[in-house]
Amino acid sequence: MKSVSSILARFLHSDAQADRVVPPSGFTAQLTLFAAGAMAFLAVFALALSLAAGRLAEQWGNELARSATIRIAAPAEQQQAQTDAALHILETTRGVAQARALTNEEQAALLAPWFGAELELDTLPVPRLIEVIETSEGMDAAGLRLRLSAEVPGAVLDDHSRWRAPLVKAASRLRLLGWASIILIAAITAAMVTLAANAALAANAQVIAVLRLVGATDNYIAQAFIRRFTLRALIGAAAGMVLGMIAVLFLPRGGDETASFLTGLGFQGVHWLLPLLIPPLAAGVAFVATRMAARRTLEGLS
């Protein structure tokens, strides 16, 4: 840790003269800036994707797991009796926090999108729905199903797990892919900086030879290159990050928070601060990559 801070201190204090000993390189410098910016831009999106997928997995995992539905399809004259029987069973079932039959008006509201608001519910054999909210430890769905089939023949328990599980799995996988993309982006940045640094070191072979001849240490020579590439990566990544965040900010959104994955893509709350880590990380990657490239090259020289 101490060596890292001393390296950083030396790095920040290395004077402008050390920077001047390596001739400026216009075009390749801009390429490094551009590549760092593009990588940061992509990293912002990968980050947004990971965070949104994470949120979604959590929501689906938590909220839906806590609720279940019982549908009672019975002849009209038995419906009320079976509903009461089911509610009675639920009252004595462990893990059920709350159970309540939906009213006619609520069921009509649920059906309105399909049948229109003018529907007379009484004229149709609509099953009754019971909304079950589980406690945090959850209930034994299989056991409840058995009791219901014995006492309430018309009841069907739907605990949502059948369609929920693959969604949660998909969201988790998506989050994993997002993080993998971020790691790949960092690796590409390192590879790109290494290539650029190697090119710069090769192009400046004469400068390095002169510096060695007049007594420059490897550290001094490496510093001039490291400083340059680190600053380029930092500036490029900062620009890319700002553009990426603006793009995320202007993504269309709408619906309620569970409505859609697409409209939920983006950052929430303190997560807006996470992309700010991208430029320093890019600079760190460039620092290490250039340092290793410079070491390797210099050690091969006399």
Partner: peptide
């Protein structure tokens, strides 16, 4: 160092040390 003037080239050993 072809991009630096003669005086800076002569003073280079001072800078690098």
């Amino acid at each position: 160092l072809d991009h630096l003037p003669v005086s800076e080239n002569i003073a280079l050993p001072l800078h690098v040390s």
